[in-house]
Design a protein around this nucleic acid. Structure first.
Lengths: 175, 175
DNA sequence: GGTATTTGGTTTTATAAATAAACCATAGGT
DNA sequence: ACCTATGGTTTATTTATAAAACCAAATACC
């Protein structure tokens, strides 16, 4: 993707920052505790120029903070900011999805753990206002205040717009 | 990223499929109810060859199903499979994160709605076994059965490995 | 005190991917 | 019979990515 998407959709704006695999590997490393250039490089396998550029981008956007550690030892270290830490739910959901749907039970490379209770982290999911898990079709979309005309039309045309009570025939799921 | 990551980490394997912005825009469209080639093209803005390739990939990997709709009207339609629908938590988490951290309150382009109760979908988050929200530092990692030697060493070296009770000085968060 | 090594990059070059445009085949309409 | 819409594929051009070489500062080694 050459230039960022001009769409106002939250998915598109998200992808303008995080629609890139290297960026996520760097974020993963930061969550694993990496702070130094060399650590990121070894553990992600990214080329140095690419890593340099991505780190700078993450710093510029406020996800990482670069600290000069002075004259002795390593010169710079990169730390997650609060904004960076806010990515935890996204990253954790990815990991759980991957464990379940790519690796499968018994093949998980790594588990996420509730550190306080030393147990597997419960599955992250979309819960309704009644606390029950939402399935496909239960989640609808509503136009928000940041929408422009084009986006509003698109959302309103969706069979999952909250105005629509049931799906039109043509997009009825097949199974 | 030229070739897929050989790493066994669930983040890396996830990114081998979904570390690409176009793929997500297509998935978004599928969730919005798009089924036809032209719809995907108009709504994502992707070039036709790129769209064709990505759709084929999503079909090949079992996220979409391509149906021949017969001789009259549109010839093919693409539907989400169960595996495709399983992406809902990942996509929904992205949308909520984007709304909160990119667009901000009052700037949300679109909201996700609990359709049964016609209310905003509660925030998706990592809850501990006690039902309380996990923060950064509460979530640890444990080596799983699908790990190889390299991956195990990496995970065990992490300050967030469950064996470590507290973080070493050097990676102590700065604030 | 000179040489090598580590860290953290930047620059250059080669390769891969994305975009745009042209082309094509089928079906349906006029 | 011709025109249009759909759903693509192929080709050429532009752009981004990746690998490798290079560079500079600070230690560390001898």
């Amino acid at each position: 993707m050459t230039k960022p998407h001009a769409q106002t959709c939250p998915v598109a704006t998200f992808l303008n920052i995080f629609g890139d695999a290297w960026t996520w590997l760097i974020v993963r490393e930061a969550f694993y505790g990496a702070t130094r250039f060399g650590e990121f490089q070894r553990n992600t396998g990214a080329a140095k120029n690419l890593l340099s550029e991505r780190l700078n981008k993450l710093v510029a956007e406020g996800f990482l903070e670069r600290k000069d550690m002075g004259t002795s030892g390593p010169r710079y270290e990169y730390f997650l900011t609060e904004k960076g830490k806010s990515l935890i739910p996204v990253l954790a959901t990815m990991v759980q999805w991957s464990n379940e749907h790519i690796h499968g039970e018994g093949g998980e490379p790594v588990f996420l753990i509730d550190g306080k209770h030393n147990q597997l982290l419960p599955k992250i999911g979309a819960l309704g206002t009644d606390g029950r898990e939402m399935k496909w079709g239960d989640i609808l979309v509503r136009v928000g205040p940041g929408s422009n005309r084009l986006a509003r039309e698109r959302v309103e045309a969706s069979p999952f717009h909250e105005g629509k009570k049931k799906l039109p025939k043509r997009v009825q799921p097949s199974n």
